[in-house]
């Protein structure tokens, strides 16, 4: 099965009646239930909500990294949980990217090496050229051979953004991408992220606490008390 090209479909994400619960010693905890969400290609979506509402868990489910307790989620027309680990991984490598709050760069690789890595995993022969171009795009052409420890927080997140866009993913999930940065740097990073997203036509799912940041997305959802509600922008 060729997983590198998404199936032609109206929605890149189609979540139907999704629920998630955890078993604890004190009994099951229902994080959320009956969540329905349909996202079209190229849309920018923000998910907000108070701490502990389950935003990150919802993101994991939508990205196919976790299985829902009930309901189904289709990414690019495919239900990931029905695929094998190998197929899921191949799909993830080709179609999904992530940007994390804590950057998560590999410390032993320089900026270029970090951006090249997902391309190399895909077997892309042009990995170095593409990665260099992506780093130029985020304004780090002078930092290609710097290790993460030699970069500032903002620069590290830019490397992470360059890495996320390197494979031209269909879907980009960003979990509080400015959470570890000061306000000024955070704004610059968001600008960069949205700009690249627009030019690549990637679907962006962004988790944030910041209402102002959320307002910059086309659609905004609020998760609270296990319910997901769409707010009008």
């Amino acid at each position: 099965m060729d997983l590198s090209n998404p199936v032609e479909t109206q929605f890149v994400i189609n979540a139907q009646d999704v629920a998630k619960q955890f078993a604890t010693q004190a009994g099951p905890i229902h994080l959320f239930s009956k969540i329905n969400l349909q996202i079209k290609p190229g849309e920018t979506v923000a998910i907000t909500g108070p701490s502990g509402a389950g935003k990150s868990s919802l993101l994991s489910l939508l990205a196919g990294l976790d299985e829902p307790s009930a309901g189904s989620i289709a990414l690019c027309g495919r239900t990931l949980t029905e695929l094998s680990d190998k197929q899921q991984s191949a799909f993830r490598a080709a179609s999904i990217s992530f940007v994390f709050q804590s950057f998560h760069l590999l410390p032993e690789l320089d900026a270029l090496g970090n951006v090249m890595l997902p391309l190399q995993i895909l077997g892309n022969k042009q990995a170095k050229t593409i990665a260099t171009a992506r780093l130029e795009q985020v304004g780090l052409s002078h930092r290609l051979h710097h290790k993460p420890a030699q970069l500032s927080g903002g620069e590290q997140q830019r490397v992470a953004i360059a890495r996320a866009f390197a494979t031209q993913p269909t879907l980009l999930f960003a979990d509080e991408p400015t959470g570890n940065l000061d306000q000024h740097t955070g704004e610059q990073i968001i600008e960069q992220l949205l700009q690249m997203n627009a030019s690549e036509g990637t679907t962006l799912i962004l988790i944030t606490h910041d209402p102002a940041l959320a307002q910059r997305c086309q659609r905004v959802f609020h998760l609270d008390n296990g319910q997901l509600q769409e707010h009008t922008v």
């Binding site: 680990d85 190998k86 899921q88 991984s89 080709a94 890595l117």
Partner: peptide, 16 residues
């Protein structure tokens, strides 16, 4: 753990 999780998000399967 964290590194393994990251490599998984970048597309490595378990065997890899």
């Amino acid at each position: 753990n964290r590194r393994a999780a990251l490599l998984r998000t970048l597309g490595l399967n378990r065997a890899q």
